[in-house]
């Protein structure tokens, strides 16, 4: 009684297996699944007829039907994943790009190189506990000169160096004016840096600008010495160049420091052997510095007997030029995008 049904199950199964074996598209497999295993599929219809069979028939046909169903499901899934793998393999074999083709250009912005070096230095000094202070760019004669032990008729005041504005004021010729302002405002002990724009009434050429940028540093505390100054500037250079750099201090005269010093670092192009960049000396001048003059401490209302301090003034433009191999300082203030977009 159940034998013809069993036979038709075997027929359905073998036909389906044959069809699965030759299927080359996922859609064909989906059609086979629908036609055989779907709700109204051939096998489903047979199994739905079980209720008309006797118990032994139910058992044998049900069993055979389920076995066939599982076998077909396994065959379908196997074939499907084989076909999918083939599709992926084909895509992998086919899909190629030109890895040298550039991305479409996006409009990018640019940070000014001088400002970016300045910000980097600010970060460094802030990490060492220095407060960043700002001061007026139009400065009094007193803070720019007199308080810094530059009396009237000192050569540094030559009219050809200083821009004067109405009221006897000057465009600050250095950021050092902040020394006395900061001491008066915050007292001692004190750790400040003051980056900013300074002015010199000079004719412009590739290495001279009438407008440029400095970063003034000042530490006032008890027992501050030349050895401390050197250590802090060594740290600065290590940050700028990413490694320890040989330095030397040598005497120089600035009226507001005593002793007055200049810090040189070993030329990185020739390693100190002498080249055109370091003018054959093996050394490049980084900044003027020294121990704050007792008169300057006194002008800042700081007791020179109790406190001592060091100060330094870095030229940011020159440092930026060195870092980026910029040969002409006049690019800095040019506003020229051909220059700015390189940074």
């Amino acid at each position: 009684m159940s034998e013809p049904i069993l036979q038709s199950i075997r027929d359905i199964e073998s036909r389906a297996h044959a069809a699965i074996a030759v299927a080359v598209a996922i859609e064909t497999l989906q059609a086979i699944e629908r036609d055989v295993l779907g709700k109204t599929g051939q096998l489903s219809q047979i199994l739905r007829g079980l209720k008309d069979l006797d118990d032994s028939g139910k058992k044998s046909v049900g069993q055979a039907g389920n076995v066939a169903k599982r076998a077909l499901e396994a065959a379908l899934s196997q074939r499907k994943s084989a076909l999918e793998s083939a599709v992926i393999a084909e895509a992998l074999a086919r899909d190629r790009i030109d890895p040298t083709e550039p991305a479409p250009r996006r409009h990018a912005g640019h940070e000014h190189p001088v400002k970016s070096v300045m910000r980097e230095l600010e970060d460094l000094f802030e990490s060492m506990g220095f407060t960043i202070v700002d001061g007026p760019e139009i400065e009094t004669d007193y803070f720019n000169f007199e308080a810094l032990n530059i009396p009237p008729n000192h050569p540094a005041r030559d009219t050809q160096d200083t821009f004067y504005v109405e009221g006897g004021h000057v465009l600050r010729t250095h950021t050092s004016g902040l020394q006395v302002r900061a001491m008066r405002k915050y007292g001692a002990p004190l750790r400040v840096v003051s980056p900013g724009r300074v002015f010199r009434n000079e004719t412009q050429d590739a290495s001279h600008e009438h407008t440029f940028h400095q970063l003034e540093g000042l530490v006032v505390d008890e027992g501050i010495s030349v050895a401390h100054l050197k250590a802090v500037l060594d740290e600065l250079l290590e940050r700028i160049f990413g490694e320890r750099v040989a330095t030397r201090l040598r005497p120089h005269h600035f009226p507001f420091v005593e002793p007055g010093l200049e810090l040189d670092f070993q030329c990185r192009l020739c390693g100190g052997k002498g080249c055109a960049t370091c003018k054959q000396t093996g050394w490049i001048e980084l900044c003027g510095c020294g121990m704050v003059h007792p008169k300057v401490l006194a002008a800042g209302n700081v007791d020179p007997e109790k406190f001592s301090g060091f100060a330094f003034g870095l030229g940011i433009d020159r440092l930026t030029m060195m870092r980026h191999a910029i040969s002409d300082i006049r690019w800095m203030m040019s506003g020229d995008l051909r220059f700015l977009r390189q940074f």
Binding site: E126, G129, F130, T131, I132, V133, D134, P189, R191, V219, D221, I224, S225, V226, A227, H228, K230, A231, V232, D234, E235, R248, L249, R250, P251, E258, P259, G260, L261
Partner: peptide, 27 residues
């Protein structure tokens, strides 16, 4: 200064100052 320069500033061996751990004021 006269004593320092004639002795040679290389004799000032770099040492970072020991300062109070006082955070910088924000700008």
């Amino acid at each position: 200064e006269e004593v320092g320069r004639l002795s040679g500033y290389e004799r000032a061996l770099p040492s970072l100052p020991r300062l109070a751990v006082k955070p910088a004021m924000r700008n």
